[in-house]
Design a binder for these strands. Structure first.
Lengths: 235, 235
DNA sequence: TGGGCGAATATTGTATAAAGTTTCGCCTGT
DNA sequence: ACAGGCGAAACTTTATACAATATTCGCCCA
């Protein structure tokens, strides 16, 4: 009971039923267990989480606002299917915002943060070694999010959360080879630059990292989207 | 029937009951008819718009996601009260994003857009002349939004909508003098630069415009927030 | 046999009712 | 007179019932 009712503490959302649903569905999408275009029925999800449709609906609306779910009127919610144009916008926004975020991260550097970052790198390497693609894709997104948290800039953090979630879908849909989503090595270089408090290097590493991710994508004219999707879903 | 059911067109939300509520409340907040800290009771709003609490709740949750409403668990929804720290974050983000947006706007320039911009400037001048503070504050926000629409970058547009809405609250809470929120003259200079397709000038004008707005603010340590709020609400 | 119309079914949108929490007034006791 | 606590009222939260809309499947007809 003591752990349940916290009158004043504004914990983000933990132990909240709507948030449990939202985070569960988000994780499933980010780990590519739910593919773009998948229908997310309200009853279906409600039964999984033992919640009524009211709560499921709230969670789905939040996900829609984050851009990883589309809600079509009278038809339901579907995992979003970003177009190549969307993809270009997402990465352009990331190229604009993330260098600035890493700048702030350098300002906030501390032994505790360095520790956290290196612990994260270890997790990434471990997941990569054991070939756990789902954990890898999740962790590589969380790395960028971690840096945004480190920056202490809550607005950038909110924006980046959206961009990361969409990026995960984009990488699933449009990557050329079955390369790991983000090279762990790049992340290590970024951490090194942060540790050295070298803003210029940190910005540069972040930017080239993002460029490399986007370079791995196959973003052609939107007309051929359907084929590409069929390809992914069929595989 | 033709105008009502559009299966594929993703019109933002027009003629949707939830959106009517959201836009109504948003307008009230942006025009400073609802002050920061005001409680937004579900029954109260529902009665105004002739809607059930279900729809009101949906609208309020969307506004919470946009950052202009805070929802406190088991207590209800309140008009957000940005802290000075929030204010600094918002303007930093705007200084980062808006120069890039205006860059894109220059790329998209066309006679139709120039026309629309100048029509908007005329509206702003008119509102300023007749001393309509509410219309002025609304229109000055819409100017920035218009440029974001012109850029064709939907992600930047979404981000900027949030930033503008929060800016409106910030200006209300923290401006030094009762100066008009944004000088119409600055907007005119930005339009001129866009019309000349001069990206450098457009970026520079936008940046200095944002700097001037923030310079008009009184952003001290958060400790004194309460006094400031009392000041505004008492007046 | 293939296409199209139509009823049945399933799913979402909306409203209302039940349950839980907070707040505020009032009362009692010191 | 004042502090503390009890209790009722108001509100939010959650669940459920009802209405509207889309989809699906079967049947009929060409």
């Amino acid at each position: 009971m003591a752990a349940k009712s916290r009158p004043k503490s504004d914990a983000p959302d933990v132990s909240d039923r709507v948030s449990r649903i939202r985070e569960g569905v988000t994780a499933a999408i980010l780990e590519h267990r739910l593919l773009p275009g998948t229908k997310l029925g309200e009853d279906e999800i409600g039964e999984i989480y033992g919640a009524s449709r009211t709560l499921v609906r709230t969670a789905l609306q939040q996900l829609a606002h984050e851009g990883i779910v589309n809600i079509e009127k009278n038809r339901g919610a579907f995992v979003a299917r970003p177009t190549p144009a969307d993809a270009r916008e997402v990465f352009e926004a990331r190229r604009l915002i993330e260098p600035t975020i890493v700048d702030h991260a350098v300002d906030a550097v501390s032994p505790a943060w360095i520790n956290r970052l290196q612990q994260h790198l270890a997790e990434e390497r471990e997941a990569e070694l054991r070939g756990d693609a789902r954990a890898s894709v999740r962790l590589s997104g969380e790395f960028h999010r971690l840096i945004a948290e480190m920056s202490g800039h809550s607005i950038y953090l909110g924006f980046l959360k959206e961009l990361i979630a969409r990026s995960s879908l984009i990488i699933l849909l449009y990557r050329r080879h079955d390369t790991p989503a983000c090279g762990t090595a790049h992340h290590a270089e970024i951490v090194t630059a942060i540790r050295k408090r070298d803003k210029l290097a940190a910005r540069a590493q972040m930017l080239s990292h993002l460029n490399e991710i986007e370079a791995e994508l196959f973003l052609k004219d939107p007309a051929a989207d359907e084929l590409r999707l069929a390809d992914v879903l069929g595989a």
